[in-house]
Amino acid sequence: MIPRFISQEALKEWVEHLITQFSVYAPVQEKGDYDFAKIAHAEEIAFDFDRTRMSIKGFFLKPEEKLMSASASKGDPVASSPDTSKRIIFGARPCDITALNLTDNVFVKDFYDPYYMKRRQSTIIIGIRCTEKCRTCFCGTMDSNNPLTGYDIMLTEMDTGEILIQAGSDNGEKLFRGSRHLTRQSSEEDQSLILKTFKKITETFTPDIPTTGLKAIIDLGRTEFLWKKYEKICLSCGQCVFVCPTCWCFDVKEIVGADETDFGNLDKTARIRRWASCLYKDYHTVSGGHIFMPTVASRLENYYKHKLRGIPEKFGVWGCVGCGRCVSTCPVGIDIRESLKELTGD
């Protein structure tokens, strides 16, 4: 699709139109922060949002979900089927989309996870490009502010206030069928406007933390000082993990008598999956009581190295997308941007 333009007013009208066909989730202002919620009207959208409290990973990897149920005596496993009604996430930020692309590598390519995949396939993603840095952003450094795939539509606000529409998939293009009258075609005169806006965005998101020598520094093992320093203050609350768009670890529990409608029936069992955190001792404890990573320092080292060393080697991209949610949620003020600077000696 050749990029088109839409005015801010018409965009709201278009969203109203989408709401009649799909469940639409968009950032709304809630409890002093922004969060994704199902909306009934375009007015509810907080268009001035920088980023949401939680990333969009929870739409695909549910915080808590039943994977299957079974009978204790007969077996009969029945897999749960996730809700696959078509839905739209409106307003995903580029860093979240980059994270989602990385998540696909793990949950689709490495191991096929039907629960994740079904939700992924039934979700249309409309991204909104950032034109300014947010509270804790360092996505320029982590090369995540310009995802090339992973979205169906990408919206970019121009200097003039008009919004540029780029389709990223056939599904995205289809969304504008029947609503073309709300948009206008781009002409040659728009070219300079588009270039000007994108140039400004590129300048805004120029990498500002050095990462070139990071691999060598981590491989040399000169990182101990940092984990030891953080160990003294980290509460092991695990919040950084839950807000992180690229933390996917989960825990699986078997539950007995799990049927709410048939309380006390011991024959009914269920398998529950819920978010877990590698910063908990429990996560590293195995049968017999052995703990693979007994110290907070070793767990922090694992957390950072996974993002800055492990994922880059395996998938060719950073395992951190620079959204900085961990920075604002950390109760003791551990700041990954400072960690990077300390590691690279800046």
Binding site: G32, D33, D35, R53, P63, C237, Q239, F242, A276
Partner: peptide
């Protein structure tokens, strides 16, 4: 064997 933050974040609460 984990802190309340786990369940709190799962519930999507304000911190």
């Amino acid at each position: 064997n984990m802190p309340v933050c786990n369940e709190c974040k799962i519930k999507g609460n304000e911190c």
